[in-house]
């Protein structure tokens, strides 16, 4: 499954996208069984599986991951070798954070997959086309829930706007080196969504940045999360699980 024409800049994009998919998929799993209602549990579980599937497919295209195996590559690198964003890595202990992260992330992810579909060749372009068919469901999930919840009560609006502000403060970190001309488009889409849901987005999009514009710097909480991800595999490096 190697991508024969993958030059170093494209490989950097693929690695960042793969690590983002891995981290966001792994973080989504924290809500399994604990969503606000059962249908939401099931939906979030499907999204988490899709994101992990995308991570696996992307890792398989990276020569470094092919050499070490995707589990070793995905789980056992040094923290500084990951290129995931703070948005993807962030521990969401509140459902509002988790839902807003899913919306903002999938808005960006869709643009990136579209870019990969247009700018790369098979098999990466084929993977992008397949992933986009799944992303449409992820975006529909966020849209259908947020359009009803965000404007409904003062508490819901307050929580969701606070979450939106929190994550928009990580935008520089998310787009650094990987803008690909997409950040402006993303911001327009986010502002459009917010407007439909009765929220003025201009001030939110100018939220002061709290995360470094450097994807080699891990987010607070990453070390503990990484230790959790590798707890079993580290028990016996010679074992096949």
């Amino acid at each position: 499954m190697n991508e024969p024409s993958m030059d170093p800049p494209l490989a950097a994009v693929v690695l960042a996208l793969a690590d983002d998919e891995h981290m966001v998929g792994a973080r989504h799993t924290a809500w399994i069984g604990l969503g606000p209602f059962l249908e939401e549990d099931l939906a979030f579980c499907s999204i988490a599986q899709d994101e992990l599937g995308h991570a696996i497919a992307l890792y398989e295209m990276l020569p470094a991951a092919q050499a070490s195996g995707i589990d070793a590559f995905g789980l056992l690198r040094e923290p500084s070798a990951y290129r995931s964003s703070w948005l993807a890595e962030w521990e969401c202990t509140d459902w509002a954070d988790s839902l807003v992260r899913q919306w903002l992330y999938d808005r960006a992810e869709t643009l990136r997959w579209e870019w990969l579909r247009e700018m790369s060749s098979p098999p990466l372009a084929d993977l992008a086309a397949r992933a986009l068919s799944e992303e449409s469901f992820h975006l529909a999930h966020a849209e259908h829930l947020l359009c009803r919840v965000m404007p409904s009560t003062e508490e819901a609006k307050r929580r969701l706007v606070a979450s939106t502000s929190r994550f928009l403060g990580m935008s520089d970190n998310f787009w650094v080196d990987l803008d690909l001309g997409l950040r402006q488009q993303w911001e327009q889409l986010v502002a459009g969504d917010l407007a439909r849901w009765g929220v003025e987005g201009t001030a939110l999009l100018n939220t002061p940045q709290v995360a470094p514009a450097d994807r080699s710097v891990r987010s607070p909480g990453f070390d503990a999360f990484h230790a959790e991800l590798t707890e079993v595999v580290a028990l016996d490096p010679s074992a096949i699980w």
Partner: peptide, 13 residues
Amino acid sequence: PKAPGLRLKQIFL
């Protein structure tokens, strides 16, 4: 979250 592999994590999910 501690599943010792990405595919295993998908399966248990």
